[in-house]
Amino acid sequence: MARVFEALSAWQVMLAGLLFFGGIYLVFGAATWLLTRHVLPALGIGRPLDPRPLPAGQLRREFAQSGLSILLFGTGMIFPWGLLQLGWAHLDPDAGWRKILVEILVLVAWNDVHFWVNHRLLHAKPLRRFHLPHHRSVVTTSFSTYSFHPIEALMLGNVILLPMVLHDFSFWSLVSVPLFSLFFNCIGHANYDFFPNVSYAHWFAASRRHHLHHACYNGNYGFQFTFMDRLFGTRLKADAATSQLNAFRQSARHDGRT
């Protein structure tokens, strides 16, 4: 597969990228929506995190912004392909499953570091305006995952370029990055606590932590794990959004909506 990818033309690479990113966005997003809106509640597994309703037009806006991100991610496949064509990076076509597994684990950790750094930069004053479109989704959905300003999409979408020039990865290791990234992203934006009984610090509580990031705007800049937020002291407390959610519930009871 590595040799096939390298042999593609630039137009074929971009078309394949568009189909790949568009396909996984729709499949992962729809599956997460179905699970958290219908299947898991019916089974009594987990619970919603933020009870506030979605504003009118939010899903339409998320699809529009995500479509632009998919365009950038898909056509952006020309850059890793270009590194291979220039000889600045190489793929290992003979990697065994053990090497692929180790590479994926390294890329999972790198993805969290890369995300935290770029996410923290996007909350700094010079770049904040490029992150605000994503934060318009205060109550998130699985379709918020790619709902980015183009600048943010470019910053987050270059995650594999540096690793590629430092190491000869397997093609399958690199392909895993958008797959596990979108999987974790859907969990984080699902507005659903899949494991209510685990501690707030647990890996499985990522949706709780990212829900707080959107509810409070600052803090919890990490992706799936907590090591970067712990290291730099940016982790929010577990009850950071309690006051605003309680205020909504009281207002809802007063209006007779619950």
Rank of each mutant, 00 (worst) to 15 (best):
F5Q: 04
A7E: 13
S9M: 08
V13C: 00
V13N: 02
M14W: 07
L19H: 01
F20Y: 12
G23A: 06
I24V: 13
A30V: 10
A30P: 05
L35C: 13
T36G: 09
H38Y: 15
L40F: 11
P41A: 13
A42I: 10
G46V: 02
R47F: 06
L49Y: 05
L49K: 04
P51T: 06
P51E: 05
R52K: 09
L54T: 01
G57N: 01
G57T: 10
G57C: 05
Q58K: 11
L59N: 00
E62I: 06
F63W: 08
L68M: 10
L68T: 10
L68H: 06
F73E: 11
G74P: 07
G74R: 05
T75W: 12
T75N: 06
G76P: 09
M77Q: 10
F79L: 14
G82F: 03
L83C: 02
L84A: 05
Q85F: 08
Q85I: 10
L86N: 08
L86V: 08
L86I: 12
L86T: 13
H90R: 14
H90L: 11
H90G: 14
D94F: 05
A95S: 00
G96W: 02
W97I: 03
K99E: 15
I100A: 10
E103W: 00
V106W: 12
L107M: 12
A109W: 07
D112E: 09
F115T: 06
F115I: 05
V117H: 02
H119Y: 10
R120S: 14
R120E: 13
L122R: 12
A124K: 14
K125F: 14
L127I: 03
F130I: 07
H131N: 15
P133I: 10
H135V: 13
S137Y: 13
T145R: 08
S147R: 08
S147N: 06
S147I: 07
S147T: 09
F148I: 05
F148Y: 12
F148L: 07
H149T: 02
P150L: 02
P150V: 05
L156C: 04
L156W: 09
L156A: 13
N158L: 07
N158F: 08
V159M: 03
V159E: 01
V165W: 03
F169T: 00
F169E: 01
S170N: 03
S170P: 00
S170T: 01
W172G: 02
W172E: 11
S173Y: 06
V175C: 07
S176D: 04
S176M: 03
L179Y: 04
F183I: 00
F183M: 04
G188A: 07
A190N: 01
N191W: 00
Y192E: 01
D193K: 01
N197P: 07
S199R: 10
S199W: 02
Y200S: 05
H202D: 15
H202Q: 04
H202M: 02
S207R: 01
R208S: 03
N218A: 09
N218V: 11
T226Y: 01
T226Q: 09
F232K: 04
F232Y: 13
G233P: 09
R235N: 13
L236K: 03
D239M: 04
A240C: 09
A240Q: 09
T242P: 07
S243H: 14
S243G: 13
Q244L: 14
Q244W: 12
L245F: 10
A247I: 08
A247V: 06
F248C: 12
Q250T: 15
G256S: 09
R257M: 13
